[in-house]
Design a protein around this nucleic acid. Structure first.
Lengths: 196, 196
DNA sequence: TCAAGAACTTGACACTGTGTAAAGTTGACA
DNA sequence: TGTCAACTTTACACAGTGTCAAGTTCTTGA
């Protein structure tokens, strides 16, 4: 029973990731332990609670998926419209990667203050990205009249929510491609005066 | 300990409604029983499970709030644009009324098939309303080119989701008024070629 | 080579909330 | 007076999280 290649902590994180990605949603600590080839108690040796484990799993995914690289093109955009488009593309592409854990974390929000805060922080980060795109749009004078930067940010942030992705792809059956074009469209129509 | 005015069943439904509206979200069967002035077991005499109780509570609210009356103006609209506007107003106005129970029901979806189906049914009913509005719009030739009725319906349905209402009002702090105008705006911009 | 310690395992238990079961109480009504 | 329905009280099974304590095994360093 010697430990496999990566250390136990990493194996646990990978196990959690895999199981949550399959989406069974009812992923218990014991399931994760079993998948990691470790006892249930060993999981608590590395993570104090289920919430912490899930939060660490999102960090683990971010690292593996190089989230920052994904956002780089958007930050390098030379005008507001380009920035908005690239930001939407980046985030929309990232959603499916974190959806599994995100779903579990969202489900815990009512019971677990820690989980609530962790997921809230992540969503605030997305909001910052939205604010930057809106700000670039405003700088170009492209922001629709009758819309403050604040409100435009909230609107974009809401359009890009994980729940909306979930509803359109998983419930309504849209392809990722359809989702992406519809959302870019909606963002431009909602935030600017001339659609792209 | 004689029973108060309304019969126990009604008192339980009202208690559930009240508690869920306050939003504590962690509303247990025992909380509801206590608020109804009844033993926890008595609740099970009237409702087989927590899911059933919540579902019955939504029906109870519908009855009390006369949901159908709310939709009537929309159905009586004489053109597509009017129909869309009135539908959005009706549903947007109804969301705060059912949000408390809706939240609890949404939280149960992962664990409880019954709850999943019940909430899903309600959301399908909303989708039908969306479809009717989109259809009226299409009949007037007002539906944006490049958008099928199906896709337009999904889009509207998603815009009008309870989660979006939750995010904009409860999380972003918008007033109901701000939410309503922004959503009407977004719906017209997203579905038609000329904004209202 | 032995001792210490880190990393784990095994097994037991407390806690919460849902749902089930059974026996007792109360009031209305025939 | 007796019976039925509506309720109460008490007890328990079950799932899943998290805690605790006592082993085992493997490594490392004096």
């Amino acid at each position: 029973m010697s430990s496999q290649n990566p250390n136990a902590r990493t194996r646990i994180l990978n196990a959690a990731w895999n199981l949550l990605e399959k989406g069974g949603s009812k992923v218990r600590m014991s399931d994760i332990a079993k998948a990691a080839g470790v006892s249930r108690q060993a999981v608590y040796l590395h993570f104090p609670s289920r919430a912490e484990l899930l939060i660490e799993t999102t960090r683990h995914i971010d690292e593996a998926k190089a989230v920052d690289d994904r956002l780089a093109p958007s930050r390098a955009a030379t005008n507001g419209r380009e920035r908005l488009q690239l930001f939407v593309e980046a985030w929309a592409g990232h959603i499916p990667e974190i959806y599994g854990v995100g779903r579990a974390l969202m489900a815990m929000q009512d019971n677990d203050e820690e989980a609530r805060k962790a997921w809230g922080d992540r969503m605030q980060a997305v909001r910052h990205g939205c604010a930057a795109a809106v700000s670039a749009l405003a700088a170009d004078g492209e922001l629709r009249s009758g819309l403050t930067e604040e409100k435009a940010t909230d609107l974009l942030w809401t359009l890009l929510s994980v729940r909306n992705w979930e509803q359109l792809t998983l419930e309504a059956g849209w392809s990722q491609e359809e989702y992406l074009t519809a959302l870019k469209d909606l963002a431009f129509r909602g935030l600017t005066d001339t659609a792209d």
